[in-house]
Amino acid sequence: YQMNALCDKVSPLRAHRLKPIRQRTKNAVVSILDTEEVCMELLKGSGAQERVKEVLRISCDGYTIHIYHPNEGRGFPLDDRPPSAPEDVYVYHFDNLPEKFWKKYQYASKFVHLVRSKTPKVTLYTKYAKCMLMENGPKADVEVLFYDGGKINKTTEFLRIVEKSGKSYTFDGGKLNGLNEEAKIYVEHAHKAHQTCLELESTIAAQEKRKEKQLSFFPIIIGRRP
């Protein structure tokens, strides 16, 4: 029995349907590959001495982690793709990943969550707005862009309204006190569009389950701008 477990800190990441990207920071490069795997390249050294010394390659369901040290531990200069795996690769399951890799896994997970929160899963064009339900479900973020310039963002933590004039309000959950008539209309419409997106998501997901092939029906776009 482990007193600490990775699952107490983070859920297995999910990178299904996310588009490829490669993003570097000071000491690492995190990528979503076209296979939907997530790759972390850890860098050591600076300038011409900079090398990719360690690679974590995480399956798109987050459960399988391949770890290797390129060029027999000497590393390779940073390239535009991760160095390929040598023969001696350590393969771990999410449940038995050694603690020294947890922080790196959590970092990859945080990045994936950020991308999911910005990736539309359901896009609905209504009479007044484009409503997007994002991939970070359950309780996914919602972004409603009104054709007149207004905007609403809903997350589990806050609701932000931007009126067409540019004036904005942020509410930390709970009641929406002191809203003017214009903002009330925006919120009401956003709420309805959000509900419709959730219903569409559930209907499409049910159809998707009936199919044997693992072919995703998402993202979906419903309607068009009037």
Partner: peptide
């Protein structure tokens, strides 16, 4: 291991996010 997730935000990431959104009201 100096992994700072805040560093991830930059212009390149913003333009990637914009590409994810279906056209019409970007």
């Amino acid at each position: 291991d100096d992994l700072d997730a805040e560093e991830l935000y930059d212009d390149r990431l913003e333009s990637y996010f914009k590409q994810l959104v279906p056209p019409g009201m970007q």
